[in-house]
């Protein structure tokens, strides 16, 4: 356990020692800020119109702002996650520091979980920025906080799964850019699978639909935790970390 924390701390330090963490935060801040003010602007506009027209059915902040925002955040995540996971192992391989990790009295799984955890924590920091934006809603309105919390839980699940896959891809090369590119491709695939499933009903489309990250995230954005979705993300995490472990093992054999 303490080994996991040692690795995790070192990894976080590396993120924040390089421009990557700040760059990600800046990118995320701008993107989310844009989506946020856009959604709020739309909401204000709508409520203004409905008052003008004399209708006064209640406007739901959760339904009109938070849910679409969470969906947007989920999509932004697909783009940012490769940038977080790409260096995890590729950089250690390139720098030769993997020799230090591999010859220290720690288990491979401790290295893997430590690194993965650091990546998830960095992503959680990004989410923190969006939470800061959303806190304005609580100042000016009364959104329901429970679905919001579940939405964030889903985002963490999603990032955990994609970062585990990214970690695996990062073990296969010593070039960060390649690791990032391939991870981005995989994330994108897991996202666009949703489109096929939207109009097709063949077995393949069903399978693709089942693999779609967005589809499994959507219930979370509505504040619903479905075991099916939780299992999907948990098994992706497990699968990704397992592949990472196997890849490190074969790395040793080939060295």
């Amino acid at each position: 356990m303490s080994n996991i924390l040692t690795i995790c701390r070192k990894e976080l330090k590396s993120y924040f020692a390089s421009p990557i963490a700040y760059l990600l935060m800046a990118m995320y801040g701008v993107l989310f800020g844009f989506f946020f003010w856009n959604a709020v602007g739309y909401f204000v506009n709508m409520s203004f119109q409905s008052t003008m027209m004399g209708r006064s059915f209640p406007m739901d902040v959760n339904e009109m702002i938070i849910r679409p925002l969470l969906m947007n955040t989920s999509v932004i995540g697909l783009f940012l996650i490769p940038l977080i996971s790409m260096r995890l192992f590729a950089e250690e391989k390139r720098m030769g520091t993997i020799e230090l990790l591999f010859t220290s009295p720690v288990r491979d799984m401790e290295i893997i979980i430590g690194k993965w955890l650091a990546a998830v924590i960095l992503y959680a920091c990004l989410l923190g920025i969006s939470a800061l934006n959303l806190s304005f809603l609580f100042v000016y309105g009364k959104p329901d906080w429970k679905p919001l919390l579940i939405g964030y839980l889903g985002l963490l699940f999603q990032s955990g799964a994609l970062l585990a896959i990214g970690a695996f891809i990062s073990t296969t090369t010593r070039n960060q850019i390649i690791a990032g590119g391939v991870t981005f491709g995989v994330c994108l695939l897991l996202w666009v699978f949703e489109w096929v499933a939207g109009y097709e009903t063949s077995t393949w489309a069903t399978v693709m639909g089942y693999m779609s990250v967005v589809r499994h995230y959507e219930p979370f954005s509505k504040g619903v935790i479905d075991t099916k979705d939780a299992i999907y993300f948990a098994s992706l995490i497990f699968f990704g970390l397992f592949l990472t472990a196997r890849s490190l093992e074969s790395l040793r054999w080939r060295a």
């Binding site: 303490s2 080994n3 040692t6 690795i7 070192k10 330090k13 590396s14 020692a17 390089s18 720098m95 030769g96 520091t97 993997i98 020799e99 230090l100 990790l101 010859t103 220290s104 009295p105 720690v106």
Partner: peptide, 27 residues
């Protein structure tokens, strides 16, 4: 064992004392 590979396995973004503490903890 203590091992010094052909290329010292150091992290350029770390300060020397940080790095040594990290390795110490790892060991």
């Amino acid at each position: 064992i203590g091992y010094l590979p052909e290329n010292p396995p150091v992290y350029p973004e770390m300060e020397v004392h940080e790095y040594l503490s990290f390795v110490g903890r790892l060991k």
